[in-house]
Design a binder for these strands. Structure first.
Length: 424
RNA sequence: GGAGAGGUGGCAGAGUGGUCGAAUGCGGCGGUCUUGAAAACCGUUGAUCUUCACGGAUCCGGGGGUUCGAAUCCCUCCCUCUCCGCCA
């Protein structure tokens, strides 16, 4: 969420910038500021009252000690009244604080200056395109048919054992998954990331910290018995490592990478959009997370963008990068690049990565700070990106590299798979 | 799952109803001394809110309560450790 002090000092700017996200913030901001004003008034009165009560309590202690029972007794009566007053003030203050927080979390993050206006993915700005578009014969199969032909992914078996969207990977298909995970992790480690293996279940505080809760509650699987959520991305546990943490400036940037399975309920999705590997309830992803100095975060975003592009190049997949427009960018993000690979048999672009700078939006929510050179604590910036999500990469690899005699594995991956092509 | 112990500042560790935001040690930072370093000595060293500032308020695992007054008493939740049981 945005910092209250920022909203207070930059009211018009907040409203203007959020208009780019097609978000009319005027009324909300007014509400917040008016509640804030009341809050500060009450806070002041309460502080003064408490201060008086504290002084009196000390005085009473002194009187009792020196044996002045009568004076003490009288003060004690007075103090009881003060007590009543503080109770009322506290109650009122709590109401105002929670009302304000409720409103404050409804404000989206402010988009970066370079974010183009727009309403949907059609208005996203294409900023890069690379790789050769494969030309496939008419007989080319979409990946869900290739999966059956080569016996490498079994969707029906997944439906039987669990449900739709939970495929089994089998033989060379399973091997390919493992190869991709190791490849992605190794590439990140080469770039100085520290590898983590996070828990796949997180508590409520963590869900709140990265912004999945409260608004996207329905997207996560929930284990009610233990009040735990299955993670929709490793971003959640990895970023929450730093919840309520004050780092040293020298620790920045923090670079973490994690492979994890990801679980998403995807309620309301259906049709050919979700066919095969296009959208799953459980999938694998390698996620990169950085915690950065505010002055550096946009350089780091570019660096992460190049990193993801490099992976796609090594996988020899045609891809493009789009900068999300105001209408398509997420609630929490200030600037997002989406990466899409071309899946030649479906003739579709599939999103395989999303790299974002959240600036201090997540950090403020989870109190992730660092102590700067002047000794002041300051919110850090958080960034993350998929590097990469597996299923759609696999879809494109299978479709684009299919030949008469099998499906060819790109050179960079062969040391990981141990085979050069997938055969029947 | 059963029984017990415990959660205090960056760390270790005192404190069991009143000058305790918290002794002491270590670590960190600054200084004295030194050609330099070490040692020694002196000083300093948490966070949040609020105020132009002085100052004030809050925080001893989280939440609630008792009391004029709570780190200290009560309730509740969470977590850690030890023993037993179970187990990849």
């Amino acid at each position: 969420m945005l910092q209250l002090s920022f909203v207070r000092e930059n009211k018009q700017r907040v409203i203007d910038r959020l208009a780019v996200k097609n978000f009319d913030a005027a009324a909300l901001v007014d509400d917040i500021l008016s509640i804030d004003k009341q809050r500060r008034n009450i806070q002041k009165t309460l502080d003064d009252t408490l201060s008086a009560a504290n002084l009196m309590a000390k005085e009473i202690g002194r009187l009792f000690k020196s044996g002045q029972r009568e004076d003490a007794e009288q003060k004690r009566q007075e103090s009881t009244q003060l007590k009543q007053k503080t109770k009322e003030l506290e109650h009122k203050l709590n109401e105002l604080v929670s009302a304000m927080n409720e409103k404050l979390v409804e404000l989206p993050n402010i988009p970066h200056e370079s974010v183009p206006p727009g309403n949907s993915d059609k208005d996203n700005e294409l900023i890069f395109e690379a790789g050769e578009m494969p030309i496939l014969p008419e007989s080319a199969l979409p990946h869900w048919d290739l999966a059956i032909k080569y016996g490498i992914i079994d969707f029906d078996l997944g439906s039987k054992v669990t449900g739709a969207g939970f495929p089994f990977y089998r033989g060379q298909g399973a091997r390919l998954q493992r190869a991709l995970i190791n490849f992605f992790l190794d590439e990140a480690i080469k770039r100085g990331y520290l590898e983590y293996q996070p828990p796949l279940l997180v508590n409520e505080d963590s869900g709140y910290g990265t912004g999945q809760l409260p608004d996207k509650e329905g997207q996560m699987y929930f284990v009610g018995e233990d009040k735990l959520y299955l993670i929709p991305t490793a971003e959640v546990p990895i970023t929450n490592i730093y919840r309520n943490v004050i780092l040293k400036e020298d620790d920045l940037p923090v670079k973490n990478v994690a492979y994890s399975s990801c679980f998403r309920r995807e309620a309301g999705s259906y049709g050919k959009e979700v066919r095969g590997l296009n959208r799953l309830h459980q999938f694998d992803k390698v996620e990169i997370v950085q915690i950065a100095h505010p002055a550096e975060s946009y350089n780091i975003l570019e660096e992460m963008k190049d990193q993801v592009a490099d992976l796609l190049r090594k996988l020899e997949l045609p891809f493009r990068i789009v900068k999300l427009c105001g209408g398509d960018i997420s609630f929490t993000s200030a600037l997002t690049y989406d990466f899409e690979v071309y899946s030649a048999a479906q003739k579709r672009w599939l999103e395989v990565s999303s790299v974002s700078n959240f600036e201090s939006f997540q950090a403020n929510r989870m109190k992730l700070r660092f102590k700067n050179k002047e000794g002041k604590t300051q919110l850090a910036h958080t960034l993350n990106g998929s590097a990469l999500a597996l299923p759609r990469v696999v879809a494109a690899l299978l479709e684009n590299n299919q030949k008469e005699d099998g499906i060819y594995i790109p050179e960079a991956l062969r040391t990981y798979t141990g085979f050069g092509k997938i055969v029947k």
